[in-house]
Simulated assay, not measured.
Amino acid sequence: MNFDKINYIERKTKELKTENPPGEGFLKFLYYNPLGKLPLNLVVRKKFLTDFYGKKMSEASSKEKIKPFVQENCINMEESKKSVEDFTSFNDFFIRELKEGAREIDNNPEALVSPADGKVLVFNDLKETTKFFLKGDEFTIEEFLMDKDEAKKFHGGTILIIRLAPVDYHRFHFPATGQIGKSKLIDGYYYSVSPYAIKKNFRVYCENKREVSILKTEKFGEIVLSEIGATMVGGIEQTYKEGFVKKGDEKGYFFFGGSSCVLLFEKDKVQFDEDILENSKKGLETKVYMGEKIGKAK
């Protein structure tokens, strides 16, 4: 069986690149081989496997994995507040903080910025029915938010998905200045959010464990900020305090694993940058960095 490569655009250089995710062969087996369906449903999507692996990555013995991981993935440790030797576990390294100034925040009040380092897709029309389809899989805002009244605000709006790979910086931040409320936990499964998995079942965003909060802004209206749990993501930690927050302030972090942030916008509130829109139409993700402008207020 042939598999599409995971291609994306490196925005800084405009190069087309290919991602080689860890465990690529296993992901293909789970999502494309009929024999993979049983372990996927019985084991991989369940909480206990993710909890087990998350605990292993918090043990002191996991420190030995850090240096090879850094070298293999060419991670720039000059940006990190701690050196490789200072981390107490692989998870401690995974949730590393960056030095001040390592990410430049676009402070133009009209600019919407990326909440995280990762690869982004934008769907610019959620339609009045609050539904859109990707390869036949149905996604509804009502089901995603588990709140019928809240979903009505986003009819005809826009969805932005930013996917964090295991090699990325795993703290997420606020894309705009505003007032933030409490984060709501919606329990669910732990399916992978790799493109291999998403192409088979886009509904994982409605089925996976996730946290949802609402950021009320002057320039962009209300924004849904949602963090998605996934296979081997040991947890989602919210570090913010309710109330006023500034663009670029830290919101929280993911423990070990690759995951996604999903943002929903009201209709006609944001104009996303043309390159991101064009790449998304072609099914290509765009690699962006936290604080980088991705759109502007309409």
Rank of each mutant, 00 (worst) to 15 (best):
S226A: 15
K247H: 14
G188M: 14
V245M: 00
K200R: 15
E207D: 14
E222T: 01
I223D: 02
I214C: 09
T231F: 11
N208G: 04
I198C: 12
G229W: 08
G221Q: 02
R210N: 05
Q238T: 03
R210E: 12
Y189N: 07
T239L: 06
K247T: 07
Y189P: 00
K246D: 07
E207T: 14
S192Y: 07
E207S: 15
E227H: 07
M232N: 06
G229L: 05
I223W: 03
S194C: 09
S226H: 05
G243R: 12
Y240K: 13
C206N: 15
G235R: 01
K199E: 12
Y205R: 12
I236E: 00
E242T: 15
G229R: 01
N201C: 06
E207Y: 06
S194K: 06
E218Q: 05
K241V: 12
S226V: 01
E242H: 10
V193D: 05
V233Q: 05
E207M: 12
Y190K: 09
E237I: 14
F244D: 12
V233E: 03
K241N: 13
K209W: 06
E222L: 01
E218H: 01
G229Y: 02
V245S: 00
K241S: 15
Y240Q: 10
L225K: 00
K199S: 13
K241Q: 13
V193T: 09
G234A: 15
Y205K: 09
A230K: 06
E242Y: 02
T239S: 13
N201D: 14
V193W: 04
I198H: 00
V245L: 08
L215D: 08
N201S: 11
E242K: 15
Q238C: 09
C206Q: 14
C206K: 05
K199Q: 12
G221L: 04
G234P: 07
I223C: 00
V193E: 02
V224S: 09
R210T: 04
Y191P: 11
V224F: 07
Y191A: 10
K209L: 13
G188L: 11
G234Q: 07
I236P: 03
S213P: 01
I198D: 01
K247R: 15
Y240A: 09
Q238E: 07
K200Y: 01
V204R: 11
V204M: 08
P195F: 06
G243P: 13
R210A: 05
T217F: 01
P195R: 14
P195G: 10
K241F: 10
T217Q: 05
A197C: 14
E227N: 05
K247Q: 13
S192F: 11
K200Q: 14
I223T: 02
G229T: 03
F244P: 01
T231K: 04
I214A: 08
K247Y: 10
S192G: 10
C206F: 01
T231D: 03
Y240L: 14
T239N: 02
C206R: 09
K209H: 10
G235W: 01
N201Q: 13
I236N: 00
A230D: 05
V224Y: 11
K219A: 07
G235Q: 06
F244R: 11
Y205S: 05
T217G: 01
N208L: 04
V193P: 00
I236M: 10
V193H: 11
I198M: 15
N208Y: 06
G221E: 03
K219E: 13
G234R: 12
E211P: 00
N201L: 08
V245Q: 04
K216N: 14
L215Y: 03
A230R: 10
S226W: 02
V245W: 03
Y240M: 13
N201Y: 13
